[in-house]
């Protein structure tokens, strides 16, 4: 929809202060989907022209990498995690058309429980590179999202990229997603990864991603107990009752454990 309060689209390569009413613009698929009466300037990240995907051992995804670009990369990569990448792209409520403009970084910054790029990058030990005028910092994806719709970004800080360590790209993975509707928004999205250890990432069912790491593969009882010991807050919105989400997480976690055993 039109953002009628916007008076300027700014090129961030031109130095200038961050002002009240400034908003980072990546794909625009979230920004333009709701009224933004407080936004006065769009600061256009795409002007940086960051290469979307850089693979040099570690994998660096620019914040402006579109879902379509990520999906293409995954398909062509031949990496063990390629299937997981595609599964997470497909976990979007949005269709392939929105993939053409929506970005990986935008999905993280929205910080919604059902953000599948959060699920993917959290499960693959992703680390966010954040930038302000003053400098940079690195924050693991699992810590980047603090709650439903809430991230660690400070005013004017931008998400530059997400780096996934090389080792994570070669792990075995198992993916489970459940929604109230076919191809609908995730009510629970779980990813298990395994090499010598085992890790489970729980998203969509919880307000923020939950990551459980085990040095060796857990037993069913250990996994269940770890989940129930860690997750105290089951997300409650129209996309699933909390009790059902809890049940589905336990069930899907066990399926993942068995699949990766």
């Amino acid at each position: 929809m039109d953002l009628n309060t916007v008076v300027e689209v700014r090129d961030p390569r031109v130095p200038g202060p961050w002002l009240p009413g400034d908003a980072w613009l990546a794909g625009g698929t979230q920004l333009f989907s709701e009224p933004q009466p407080l936004v006065r300037r769009l600061v256009d990240l795409t002007r940086f022209g960051w290469p979307p995907v850089t693979l040099g051992g570690d994998l660096e995804l620019a914040a402006t990498c579109t879902i379509a670009e990520l999906s293409r990369f995954g398909r062509d990569s031949g990496l063990p995690v390629a299937e997981l990448v595609e599964q997470c792209c497909r976990a979007f409520l949005a269709s392939f058309k929105v993939w053409n403009t929506a970005t990986v970084g935008g999905n993280l910054c929205n910080a919604l429980p059902a953000g599948p790029m959060i699920s993917l990058t959290a499960a693959l030990d992703g680390v966010c590179l954040l930038r302000t005028g003053g400098g940079e910092r690195r924050v693991p994806v699992v810590d980047f999202v603090r709650g439903a719709g809430e991230s660690v970004l400070t005013d004017g800080e931008l998400l530059r990229s997400i780096t996934i360590p090389e080792a994570a790209l070669h792990r075995r993975s198992a993916f489970r997603q459940v929604s109230l509707h076919a191809h609908g928004r995730s009510g629970a999205l779980l990813i298990g990864t395994a090499d010598t250890g085992f890790a489970l990432t729980i998203t969509a069912a919880t307000p923020r991603p939950v990551r459980l790491d085990f040095p060796t593969a857990p037993t069913a009882a250990e996994l269940r107990s770890a989940i129930l010991g860690t997750v105290t807050d089951w997300y409650d919105d129209i996309h699933g009752l909390p009790a059902w989400r809890r049940h589905m997480v336990l069930r899907l976690a066990e399926e993942i454990r068995e699949e990766l055993a």
Binding site: V9, F32, S33, N100
Partner: peptide, 27 residues
Amino acid sequence: CDAGDCGACTVHVDGTPVHSCLYPALR
């Protein structure tokens, strides 16, 4: 819907289908 959910505004931009309600016109 004007929010990217219904697809009634779909157009092709350089051959690629997008929801035009979400697409910044300047682009």
